[in-house]
Design a protein around this nucleic acid. Structure first.
Lengths: 143, 143
DNA sequence: GCTACATCCTGTAGCGACTACAGGATCAAG
DNA sequence: CTTGATCCTGTAGTCGCTACAGGATGTAGC
């Protein structure tokens, strides 16, 4: 441990930020390149130095990604929560739109799950010529 | 010289195959490049000529993609259903594994849906400083 | 035949969201 | 002073397409 402790979370090297947030080092640099994260100050030798704000933002990005938001949506959310705080209505609009997509996917997956479950249950475990899995995927099924 | 015509679904140009299967022309050529589809014979001028087998395979691929199988999984399924028909057990293994993935995603999405629904419902529509959507995505929330 | 337009060809580059190197430079500990 | 961990930049690969550019060919009407 160094003089500046993790409790203050200042002057974090990229590896530490990676460990604390669970975001891959390469991904952090990638986020900087595409301007998801502000470019941090550097040491004399050129190493990135992060602070607690970066930690917060990166953790927010990670959590949002887990929830399936795109980087573009997250960019907007961060902007809306930023210095010039915007209407919660806009934030809600993004989240609601996202939710609709999730519900559609959910419905699709449920159908698919039922179909595959039924089909696999019919599987004899014998030779393939009339394997129901191959059958159900066959041309004769209309979309 | 188009004397030899076995059936209606023979000698399809790529555009026709695309229309019949709903698979984009560029995607068909892409599939050929990555060897998902066999390279078809060509006319004297170099245009691809497809037959009913290609139609069947491509439709199978399309359907499988809709069901969320990866191209690699589909390749295996096609091989298993091909000339040397293999055990249905192998086919079932692929489908079952795929199903597990689907169930995991399904559970995740259900959780997410509940979370987002609750959060959006709490949204006041006023200014953002304590917008619950931004809150719930915040660092302070543990995973 | 000529023209217009549809369809086809190859090749390359782009998308999102990373991930994986190569080939160095620098740092912290023993 | 040496070792090994960590860091740097830059480029290219992943998956499953999609979108051109810039031609060549096919088909229909006049």
């Amino acid at each position: 441990m160094r003089a500046v402790t993790a409790s203050r979370a200042e002057h974090l090297p990229i590896g530490e930020l990676s460990r604390l947030t669970g975001v891959n080092i390469e991904t952090i640099r990638y986020y900087e390149r595409i301007r998801m994260l502000p470019a941090p100050p550097r040491t004399a030798s050129g190493r990135r130095v992060y602070g607690s704000t970066d930690l917060r933002i990166l953790a927010f990005i990670r959590r949002s990604r887990e929830l399936g938001f795109s980087l573009d949506e997250i960019r907007t959310l961060i902007r809306l929560g930023g210095p010039e705080k915007a209407s919660c209505r806009e934030v809600r609009a993004i989240a609601t739109h996202h939710l609709e997509g999730i519900r559609a996917k959910l419905a699709d997956l449920r159908k698919l799950e039922r179909l595959l479950t039924k089909t696999v249950a019919r599987c004899s475990g014998k030779t393939a010529p009339d394997c129901p899995v191959l059958d159900i995927l066959d041309v004769r099924r209309p979309k």
